[in-house]
Design a protein around this nucleic acid. Structure first.
Lengths: 349, 349
DNA sequence: TTGAAAGCGCTAACAA
DNA sequence: TTGTTAGCGCTTTCAA
C-alpha cells in the first residue's frame, strides 16, 4: 500500500519546539536575525535546516499583505509572424524577478479574441487586484488607446510599464522603454557605412507611437547622412505578405538599395521578394529588421536586426517595481535603454 | 495632494454587514450557493456585486491549503535555434489553466547555466513545495537522466508531465505526450505521395528518447512504403550548422531527394545547404522539419513541419492535474496525442 | 534578547 | 437555513 499523503511541511511551531525557543524567536531568526543572540540564532538555524523549514507563503502573505508575486498578462501568441520579443522578455523577467525574490504569475485575456471590450481588457487585472493575488503588475502593451495604464492608475494599482506613456504626457507611473529610434538609426548608419544611397523605410500603417518612434530613427539618420527620403517610405500592416508587396513596390518604383523595416516580420517579407526575384540579400539589396527574432537569427544568410536589450529591460522593471513597492521617491523620469544592432548577411555580403 | 493609498479591498465581513447576514452565509453564497434560501442568496450576491468583493486568495489559500497556482519551470530560452514550442505551450497552458480556475506561476533555474548539479535542478521545485506556494507542477523537460520526475514522485509532490516516462516504465505519474513517431510518419507519407524515393533522416546525436521516437517514425514509414533506409540516416547536434553539414553530406553521398529532420533547427540548416547550392526547396529537394516554429511559418517558401497539438496538450495536462488533485483513480495510461503536418513550400512545388 | 497575545480573511465543523 | 466557534501559519505589537 503506497502512502501518497505527504507529510505536512513543518511550521514555525515545529522549528520552535526543536530549537527550544518560542515561535516568535524563530520568526525573528528569519526576518530580523540581528535581534537574536548569536548562539540562539545558530541553534534556530540548525533546526530550520534539519527540518527543511520554509515559511508558508499563504500565511506570510495574509499577514504581511505581500504575495511576492508579480502579475504579467500574456497577450495571445502571434503565429505567422516573427514577433519573438515576448518570449525572450518573459524569460528575462522570470530571471530578474527571481533575483529580487519574486515569482511571475501569468494570466491571460485581453485583445486577440473578437468582441474584446474595454472591460474585458482590464478584467484579468481587476480580479487579481481585488483578490490581492499579486503585489504589482508589469504592463507590456502600452499602445495607443489601451485603457489599462489609465485604469490601473485610477485604481491606485501598483504597476510599472514596459513602454513609454506616449499618449499621456502627464502620466506619473514608472516605466522602462527601449529607444526604437536610436535602434533604427543604428541600422541606417550601418547601411550608410556600407555605401547605400537609397535607404527605404517600411513601417506599420496602424496608428502607433512605436511605429512613429522607429520611423523617426530612419528619417533622422537618413537625413543626417544626406540621403534622400522622398518616396522612400511606405506604411503597411505588420504581416509577411505586406512586407513582401511593400518591398517589391519600393524596389520597382523608388529604386531602393536598402530596406529598413519596423519589424522582423516585414523584413522577412522583404526577403521573400528578394528570393522571388533571385536577388541576393546583402549583395543586391540590404534588409534590416527589428527585434532580432529567432527567424532573423536562423534564416539562410541571416537577417540584420535591431535587438532590444530585454534582459536589461527586465532588470530595470523589477528594480522600478521594488522602488514603487518601497514607496521610494520617484523623479518621473523613466528609464530609456538603447538597443544594439545584430549584423548578419542581409546587410553583409 | 494625491492620495495613493488605495482603499483596502472589502472582506467577507463587509459583505455580511451590508447584506445583513453572517460571514459564514456569505462564504456559503460563494462556495455552496445551494445551501442558501434563494432570496438570501440574491441579497448576498447583490452586496458582493455592489462592493466588488473578491475572496482574498491568501486567506483562502491558508485555510483550504489550495493556492490554485500551477508551477511551471521555464527553461532558458534557446536562441539561434528554431525551437519555439515552449512559447506556444506556455500560452496554451495559461489559457487552459484559466478555464480551470488556475494561474500559472513561473520559476526558473535548472540546466542552461554551467555547473548545474542535480540539487540545482530540483531547488526551484523544492522551494515552492516547502512553502506550499503551488498546488502542483507541470513538468516539461522529462528527458533521459533528468532527476526531477523521480524526485517529485519520491516527495509525493503532485505533478503531471508533458512527456512520457521513457526511462522509467514503472513510473506511476500522470502524463501527456505527443506521438512524435506518428508525426514524422505523416511527413514521410507526404513525401512518398509526392514520389520521393530516397528519404533521409537527420536526427540528434545526443542520447534522447524523443529523437529515437521521431526516428522510429521515419524508419517505419519509409520501410512501409518500400523505400530504402541504408545510408540515409545521420545523427548530429541540434544546431543550424549541424543540419547544414548533415544535409550536404546526405545529398552528396547518399543521393537523398528528401530530408526529414528531428527539428526545425536542423531543417533550417538543410535549407541553408539548398540556398548555398542554388537548389529550390520543394522542387529540387524536399525538406520536413519538426515543431512548426515561427521560422518554419515565415521562411521564404515556407517549411513543411510537424505541428504538435500544444493546445490539446495543455488542456489534457490541466485535466490530468485536476483529476490528480481530486484524488481520482488513475489507470496509469497517460494521454498520447497525434500531431499534424503543416504543409508548405519546402515539400511543395 | 526573548515570549505572550492578537489578528490578518477565510472556511470546516458544529450548534441553533 | 443560518450563525457561532475555532484555527490555518505567520508577523506585529507589547510586555517581561
Amino acid at each position: 500500500m503506497r502512502d501518497d499523503t505527504p507529510a505536512p511541511p513543518p511550521t514555525l511551531a515545529d522549528v520552535a519546539e526543536r530549537a527550544g525557543v518560542s515561535r516568535q524567536t524563530v520568526s525573528n531568526a528569519i526576518n530580523n536575525p540581528d535581534l537574536l543572540r548569536p548562539e540562539t540564532l545558530v541553534r534556530v538555524q540548525a533546526a530550520i535546516l534539519e527540518l527543511g523549514y520554509r515559511p508558508n507563503r499563504a500565511a506570510r502573505h495574509l499577514r504581511t499583505r505581500a504575495s511576492h508575486l508579480i502579475g504579467l498578462r500574456l497577450s495571445p501568441a502571434q503565429e505567422f509572424t516573427a514577433n519573438a520579443a515576448m518570449d525572450r522578455f518573459v524569460h528575462a523577467l522570470v530571471e530578474a524577478s527571481r533575483e529580487a525574490g519574486y515569482h511571475l504569475l501569468l494570466f491571460s485575456g485581453g485583445p486577440g479574441k473578437p468582441d474584446t471590450t474595454a472591460a474585458d481588457l482590464v478584467r484579468g487585472y481587476d480580479d487579481l487586484l481585488r483578490s490581492t493575488a499579486v503585489d504589482a503588475f508589469i504592463v507590456t502593451d502600452t499602445y495607443l488607446g489601451n485603457p489599462q495604464t489609465r485604469w490601473l492608475t485610477d485604481r491606485h494599482a501598483p504597476f510599472v510599464a514596459f513602454g513609454r506613456p506616449w499618449a499621456e504626457p502627464d502620466a506619473t507611473h514608472r516605466w522602462v522603454d527601449v529607444d526604437g529610434a536610436a535602434g533604427v538609426a543604428l541600422g541606417v548608419e550601418h547601411l550608410v557605412e556600407r555605401g547605400h544611397e537609397r535607404i527605404a523605410w517600411i513601417g506599420w500603417d496602424h496608428q502607433s507611437f512605436i511605429s512613429d518612434d522607429r520611423r523617426t530613427g530612419w528619417a533622422r539618420a537618413t537625413a543626417a547622412a544626406g540621403r534622400p527620403v522622398d518616396g522612400l517610405e511606405v506604411a503597411v500592416p505588420d504581416t509577411v505578405d505586406a512586407g513582401r508587396s511593400a518591398s517589391a513596390a519600393l524596389l520597382d518604383r523608388a529604386g531602393a538599395t536598402a530596406l529598413v523595416c519596423a519589424s522582423d516580420t516585414l523584413a522577412i517579407g522583404a526577403l521573400h521578394t528578394l528570393a522571388d526575384r533571385g536577388l541576393r540579400p546583402g549583395r543586391d539589396v540590404a534588409v534590416v529588421g527589428f527585434d532580432d527574432s529567432q527567424v532573423a537569427q536562423v534564416v539562410p544568410g541571416g537577417l540584420t536586426s535591431v535587438r532590444q536589450p530585454l534582459e536589461q529591460v527586465a532588470v530595470a522593471l523589477v528594480r522600478a517595481l521594488e522602488a514603487l513597492l518601497a514607496r521610494e521617491e520617484y523623479d518621473g523620469q523613466g528609464v530609456l535603454l538603447t538597443p544594439t544592432l545584430a549584423v548578419r548577411g542581409s546587410t553583409g555580403g
